[in-house]
Each structure stands twice: as C-alpha cells, then as structure tokens.
C-alpha cells in the first residue's frame, strides 16, 4: 500500500504544485521518489510529530495541500492536539497518512499497533477518515483526498497486501464498494483486512451467500448502502483490525441504531479486544488470536446465522 500511495502522490504532485509531503523521519526506500522529484515540496521533519503537524497547518494556511507521513500512531496520537486545534479547527487541507495501520507492525509491539486510530480520528471535527482495503483503493483514495477540501486521515497498511480489485474501482468519498453480492449476510470490511473478509465469504459459499462491502471511508459512512444491506440481508457483520471501541463497528451500529424503520436483522462486530497485545506476533498471528482470520470469520458468521434460524424457525442448519 505504501508504494501505491507514493506512486500516486508523485503523479498528483506533478500536476499540482500545492502538494507537499512532510515525513516524520520515516519512509526509507519509499519516500525517496517524491523527495527526488520535488525537493522544494518535501521536508524530513525529524522525529518531531507535533511540529510536523503544525508546520503542515502553517503551509496549508498559505494555500497548500500538505501530507504528513509516519508510522502507525505517531502522526495521529503524538500530535492529536495539533490535529484538533491547528488542522481541524481551521479546516485545513492537511492529509495525515499513517503507514502500518492495524497490526501491520505486529511483531514490533503494541507501541506500533495502530488499533485505536479510527476511533480517535473519527471524533475529530471536519476530519474525513479513510482506510482503503487494497492497493487499488489506496490509489483511488489518494486521488480523492487531494480533491477533497479539508482534513483527511489515510490509514495505509505496510507492504505486500494482496490486490483485491482487478481494476481500479469507482471511488467516491463516502461511498462503499460492493465486492460481492449475496443475500444471507453482509460482511462489512474496512482497511487491509479486506482480503480475509473476501476469503471468508468464499468459504461460506455455496450454502451462505455473503455480500461483501468494502468501506474505505469510515467517516462519512455510506448510510445508503448500509441500510440497503440491513433490509436485504438478515445479518450484518463488521470486520476491522481495530479496537472494539469507536471504529467501523461502532460507526455502523450508530447508523443502524439511529434508523427506526429497519429492524429485522442481527448485528455482529468482529474486532480486536480493547487490550494491548502483550507478545510479539505477526499480523496474521494476531488476526488468528483475535478471531479475525478468514476461517474464524466464516465460522463465527455461520454459527450466528445458525442460531438465528434455530431460534426463529425450523429451517435447516448452515453448520456442515
């Protein structure tokens, strides 16, 4: 995802002289292509995220579109007040980019796990929050936020995420992407866990037809597609590499609960526990530990659907 981001940013910066990139002393073997092409619009800000974010605000006040870039929580939480007061209060064109969203830096330890970032950034006023699901969505999201007036947060994975889309999908901020049709359950995914979710949907077939929604924009949320899913499928399940507090699941449940007309569905939230990981572990190891690998996602959904049917009718079981 990092490479898709920087390639796209370079394309955009070629055409738009307002685009700057500020790096928090991070980006070895990734950001060099930008810094070499556009040295006058690139700064390595050193290990100083508060100053990086406020400098970005100062540059944006002068009419620029400024990207800040660092690992996981560093461009988000270390400088949260700068994001709130300097960027969001002034509604500036600052785009905060975190590489290593979720558990991409799994073995590096909890300090490097971005698993509360969506909650924190969703709560910032004027902030648009994006977590693309694959490198294709990253390219589209990068273009979209350059054209979007105001603060944005872009949560990237690291590298090596599988490409899900065969071609770049149509992309609009605030719209979800239907990856797969189905009328038994809707799996709602944000960020790099999308490939696990698609795999879970494939494992549920053919008995269970799972619709898969990729939600690259967590804020604003695609309420239309969510309510459609709530009408057409009996179970909605959100899947995210994020704490149970304040992320995609919270956002979706907020939409669903606020709508009194649609009631005939169940809701499952698959997320990380609200607790720091205490050991080393790869991204996949922690997904397995948290029930977020494709097999366990499929199993949890199948079991829940079975219980729903068991309690309401004598319909045949999905458990095979």
């Amino acid at each position: 995802m990092r490479n898709a981001f920087i390639e796209t940013l370079c394309e955009l910066a070629q055409k738009d002289e307002r685009i700057w990139l500020l790096a928090g002393d991070i980006g070895y073997s990734v950001l060099e292509r930008f810094s070499q092409l556009f040295p006058a619009r690139y700064v390595n800000m050193g290990v100083a995220e508060q100053n990086m974010t406020s400098v970005a605000a100062g540059l944006a006040l002068e009419g620029n579109i400024v990207f800040t870039y660092s690992i996981a929580n560093f461009p988000v939480m270390r400088c949260l007040e700068q994001i709130r007061n300097d960027v969001c209060y002034h509604n500036l064109n600052v785009k905060v980019v975190a590489v290593g969203g979720g558990l991409a830096y799994g073995a590096a330890g909890y300090t490097h796990h971005a698993v509360e970032d969506l909650a924190v950034m969703r709560s910032m006023p004027n902030m648009t929050v994006l977590a693309p699901g694959d490198p294709m969505e990253v390219r589209q999201a990068t273009r979209a936020i350059v054209n979007w007036q105001g603060p944005c947060y872009l949560r990237l994975g690291k590298g090596g995420e599988p490409i899900v889309h065969r071609a770049e999908p149509a992309f609009t901020i605030g719209k979800s992407i239907v990856i797969r049709e189905g009328n038994d359950v809707t799996l709602i995914s944000t960020g790099g866990i999308l490939s696990e979710v698609i795999s879970a949907a494939e494992q549920l077939a053919p008995q269970i037809q799972a619709r898969v929604l990729s939600v690259p924009t967590v804020k604003p949320l695609d309420e239309v597609e969510l309510l459609k899913a709530a009408k057409e499928t009996r179970l909605l399940a959100t899947v995210e590499e994020h704490s149970a507090v304040g992320g995609l699941g919270s956002a979706v449940s907020q939409v669903l609960c606020a709508t009194s007309r649609v009631r005939d569905f169940d809701f499952l939230m698959l997320s990380l526990n609200d607790a720091p990981q205490q050991t080393a572990g790869s991204q996949f190891y922690f997904r397995e530990l948290s029930g977020l690998d494709s097999a366990q996602i499929a199993q949890t959904v199948r079991k829940h659907l079975d219980e729903m049917l068991g309690s309401s009718s004598q319909a045949p079981s999905f458990i095979v």
């Binding site: 006058a40 406020s54 100062g58 006040l61 002068e62 007040e81 300097d86």
Partner: peptide, 25 residues
Amino acid sequence: VEVSTGSLGHGLPIGCGMALAAKRG
C-alpha cells in the same frame, strides 16, 4: 487574526510552516 490559538505551544510551529512556505515560494 491569522491563527486561532489558546492551547500553548502551537503558534511558533505554525509560524514555521508559514515562513517555510514564504521562503520556498
């Protein structure tokens, strides 16, 4: 008024951004 302030320690970093924009521009 150029910048909204109130929480301390924000003005000089923002000023650095404005000065950098002017310098490079």
